[in-house]
């Protein structure tokens, strides 16, 4: 491999004039091609002196791309309506940073909660108990079928459905009662619906990951006498990770952006924080740009983290 590449640097065997020789020879070969003559013998061919295939279109595409990029930059910089000065002023405003904190908190809680619940659902789905299988299937079906926004509104308005929550024996006496309206704030509603929604998505991802681990591995562990939980935790799950992480990474990036939906029930996340500001000063575009920049930064960071985590878990051999 390495020696091949260094050979490439040379112009040919022997002295430096070989290069010219070769070029003229190639030109000659090309000009003779219509006649079908050229060199037809396999003798003297050596891949070490082959040249890359000419790709004339590549230059055209590059020029077109650069022109388009220049136009885009020009449109961004010269249009005053973007008000980059306003963007700069608000990008680190306290209210925006507080909103950013809420967005991060929602993402972290929804993802970790959803992941734990998702693992439980995946295990239930793959268990031998038909009741657990049905429960898990029903959950995933329901929460993957109903749009996130609808679920959010349901939880936000849960007090209309169940005004009171009580603690007690099912169908028996109650010990204490809570007012649902007071207990479920808009933030709580947001957390609940995000966690439940994510769990449905992640359950499928985890299930696919578990199924990607060969049954042989479980058997080998069983043959040693290891118990089910230990096998799952030490043998199956670590090997499922390479299959789980890429889609889970996409999921968390989607979730980070998806949290902006909570702005409809007035949770002060990153988007809602900027909306509150532009509702006062009418600088809609610059403030949306503030939100955009933060989302861009965060998703980029997550992508970088995802890249490294995936590399860490790539074990090479999966057999």
């Amino acid at each position: 491999m390495v020696s091949l590449r260094t050979e490439h640097g040379h112009t040919g065997p022997g002295d430096g004039t070989g290069g010219e020789d070769r070029t003229s020879r190639a030109r000659k070969a090309r000009s003779e091609r219509p006649g079908g003559v050229g060199r037809t013998s396999v003798d003297g061919a050596d891949a070490a002196f082959a040249r890359p295939r000419p790709r004339p279109l590549r230059g055209v595409v590059a020029v077109a791309g650069l022109v388009l990029l220049a136009m885009a930059v020009n449109a961004l910089v010269t249009n005053d309506a973007f008000r980059w000065d306003v963007v700069a002023k608000y990008v680190t405003a306290d209210a925006v940073l507080a909103g950013l904190g809420t967005t991060l908190l929602l993402t972290a809680v929804a993802f970790s909660g959803g992941f734990v619940l998702g693992i439980a659902l995946a295990v239930m789905r793959l268990s031998r108990n038909p009741i657990l299988v049905t429960l898990s299937f029903g959950y995933t079906w329901l929460f993957r079928s109903v749009p996130m926004l609808v679920q959010l509104l349901f939880w936000y308005n849960i007090s209309l459905l169940y005004p009171k929550l009580s603690l007690g024996i099912p169908f028996g006496p109650r010990f204490t009662e809570f007012s649902t309206e007071r207990m479920i704030s808009s933030l709580t509603a947001a957390v609940i619906s995000l966690v439940l929604h994510e769990a449905g998505q992640l359950a499928e991802i985890v299930r696919a990951g578990i199924l990607s681990v060969s049954r042989d591995q479980t058997e080998a562990a069983e043959a040693l006498g290891l118990g089910g939980w230990r096998i799952f935790r030490r043998i199956v799950l670590p090997q499922a990770m390479p299959a789980i992480l890429p889609p889970a990474g996409s999921q968390i990036i989607g979730l980070l952006k998806g949290t902006s939906i909570v702005s409809v029930i007035a949770v002060q996340d990153l988007l809602y924080a900027t909306q509150l500001i532009y509702n006062r000063n009418y600088l809609v575009i610059p403030l949306l740009l503030v939100a955009t920049l933060w989302y861009l930064l965060l998703t980029t960071l997550l992508s970088v983290v995802q890249h490294f985590v995936e590399r860490r878990y790539a074990t090479g051999d999966r057999g």
Binding site: A220, E222, A223, L224, G227, G228, T315, G316, D317, G319
Partner: peptide, 24 residues
Amino acid sequence: SRRDVARQRTRTGMVFQNFRLFPH
């Protein structure tokens, strides 16, 4: 019980055709 079966399995060591070491 599964626990008891697991205990019984510890008394017989098994070696498979395709090794089945834990790759991670």
